[in-house]
Design a binder for these strands. Structure first.
Lengths: 239, 239
DNA sequence: GCCGTTTGTCGCAGAGTTGTGCCTGACCAA
DNA sequence: TTGGTCAGGCACAACTCTGCGACAAACGGC
């Protein structure tokens, strides 16, 4: 959680700039807005922002050419806004190196979700599939059957895990001991659903704890790091 | 600490100039006041100040145009004062290159906080992530596990660090030996909360010392530089 | 189409952390 | 030595973060 990310919104419509800017500022981001590619370049001179939200359709220089030009000089995450729901344009945008796109009219919440996803990806951990090549993994008094997505207790009794629980547990097993932020966990659990409220991770952790911890109130396997995230602190042995 | 920063307050209201000027002078800053853009330019001829506090609404030439003109000729931190609580205007200010803004009526303390934040940003140290690419760092009789956010003592016993403690220690490890001012430390520890009273750093240092120093009363690792800040003076080896 | 399961969201209460006030003691300059 | 400023440290308060129960929406099987 470094200092708040800096987002630049580029759109020729004042009302969209207002709406988006206001909403994102409210969410704690540092916002700059620009009405054209030229104005954007002026902002960029004063330091690189984290992601850029860029309208495709603008009079004069359009978003695609701005993107093309930016990409040639610097590595910046770009999220496109486009009025055209036509897939062709989406694909062109992504081909140019956009990290994501959104078609108007859009829900501000969804934009927020995309932005967070992009930011997550930028700070993402390298994957570590090695740890889990094995068919079963042992930790604490459990044995995880990766294929069956099932936990087997010391007494041989199996407990079924839901998809999300299994993904979360796998993310932990692939990065044992590390303190993982909620954003990283969202990323690791293949945060397919563009959900933005990372409190959902809290809930998943809570549910998982209820299944695997002897005493869920005093968790011994998944530890909480106040202000930091969670870590998996049990010994792991793959078989 | 170098010589006190020089702040120019530009507002057409005499009472605000007095109030703000008096308060900031009391805090140890060198203050100039101006009632208009013309007066500001006269002050600027005599040397560039550090930040400018600029009212948006002024008769004649307003703050926005003053800002636009300043930005075209020199690189100066600008903090806007605006009576309009409307977010649109805030964003317009940022678009023009303001570094921060404040809506009237404002708390002088908050203005102070913003000024300090801007000054911190201007004097900020370049980040030095290289030093800590390694997974663990050794110093004194400790070994810091960066991923686990844990200190391991010579006896192998781990000590958990809180988020703020970990950030502070990391800041020190990334700039070993350097005397870091409280402002720089606030900046390095991602001083998210724009709190102005740097005594909080003292407290963090105190808490950290209690955890890592053999004798917290006679600190050997984190040294105090009277009137200057703190420095990390242990040998560091990354593994 | 209905129903059970899963999963995200909300809201509140509790826990832990972190900032602030205040006092004491250390350091520096006359 | 004396006065002033700055740092250390304690304790409290405020704050933020987290845990979790409850609810609702989404999903999938039948």
């Amino acid at each position: 959680m470094q200092s708040a990310p800096h987002i630049v919104v580029v759109d020729d419509h004042g009302d969209i700039r207002d709406l988006v800017g206001k909403y994102l500022a409210q969410q704690g981001y540092r916002i700059s807005v620009a009405e054209s590619g030229t104005a954007l370049r002026r902002i960029l001179e004063r330091g690189a922002p984290d992601p850029i939200v860029l309208d495709v359709m603008m009079p004069g220089e359009d978003g695609l050419s701005v993107c093309r030009q930016l990409r040639s000089t610097m590595q910046l995450p770009i999220i496109f806004l486009t009025a055209m729901a036509d897939d062709t344009d989406r694909i062109i945008g992504l081909e140019l190196g956009a990290d994501d796109y959104l078609t108007k009219p859009f829900n501000p919440r969804e934009l927020l979700a995309r932005i967070r996803a992009v930011l997550r990806r930028v700070n993402s951990l390298p994957p570590n599939r090695e740890a889990i090549k094995a068919k079963t993994v042992q930790f604490d008094h459990w044995q995880l059957d990766v294929g069956r997505r099932e936990l087997i207790g010391g007494d041989g009794v199996g407990i079924a895990l839901s998809t999300a629980e299994f993904r979360l547990l796998k993310a932990f097993l692939e990065h044992p001991g590390l303190v993982l932020s909620r954003d990283q966990l969202l990323d690791l659990t293949a945060g397919r659903s563009a959900d933005c409220f990372d409190r959902s991770i809290d809930n998943q952790v809570s549910r998982l704890r209820k299944k695997i911890e002897l005493d869920p109130k005093n968790p011994a396997i998944i530890k909480t790091h106040w202000g930091g995230g969670y870590s998996f602190s049990a010994e792991i042995a793959s078989a």
